[in-house]
Simulated assay, not measured.
Amino acid sequence: MSLDRRLTPATDRVAHDSLQGVLQRPEYTPGQPARVRAPLADLQTAPDGRRDRQVNFGADLTVIETRGGWSFVRMALDGYCGWLPDGAITRELPPITHRVTAPATHLYPAPDMKQQELAGLSIGARLSVETVEGHFARLATGGWVPVQHIGDRPAEDPVPVAESLLGTPYLWGGNSRWGIDCSGLVQAALTACGIACPGDSDLQRAAFPETSSIRRGDLLFWPGHVALALSESRMIHATAWAMSVIHEDIAPAIARIDAAGDGPFLGAHRPRA
Rank of each mutant, 00 (worst) to 15 (best):
R5E: 12
L7G: 02
T8Y: 03
A10S: 14
V14K: 05
A15P: 12
D17V: 05
R25V: 03
Y28T: 07
P30N: 04
P30F: 04
P30T: 02
G31H: 04
Q32W: 07
P33I: 06
V36D: 00
P39L: 08
D42S: 15
D42K: 11
D42E: 14
D48P: 00
E65H: 13
T66C: 03
G69M: 04
W70D: 03
W70L: 07
S71H: 06
F72P: 00
V73Y: 00
M75W: 00
M75T: 14
D78H: 11
G79H: 08
Y80F: 12
C81P: 07
G82E: 05
P85M: 08
G87W: 01
T90V: 05
P95T: 10
H106F: 15
A110K: 14
P111L: 11
D112P: 13
D112M: 11
Q116L: 06
E117W: 07
L118A: 05
G120C: 01
L121D: 05
L127M: 10
E130W: 09
T131C: 03
E133K: 12
G134W: 09
F136Y: 14
A137L: 10
A140Y: 04
T141N: 06
G142T: 06
H149C: 12
I150V: 13
G151T: 10
D152V: 08
R153Y: 15
V159N: 02
P160R: 05
A162M: 09
A162E: 09
L165N: 03
W172H: 14
N175Y: 09
R177F: 14
W178I: 11
W178P: 00
G179C: 13
S183L: 09
V186L: 02
Q187N: 07
A189I: 09
A189H: 02
L190Q: 01
T191M: 07
C193A: 05
G194C: 13
C197W: 01
P198I: 02
D200I: 07
L203V: 00
F208W: 13
E210N: 01
S213H: 14
G217P: 11
L219I: 02
F221E: 03
F221P: 06
P223V: 10
P223Q: 09
G224V: 08
V226A: 06
H237D: 10
H237P: 12
T239N: 14
S244T: 15
D249L: 09
R256S: 12
R256D: 12
I257R: 13
G263H: 04
P264M: 09
P264D: 11
P264S: 12
P264G: 13
L266V: 07
H269P: 01
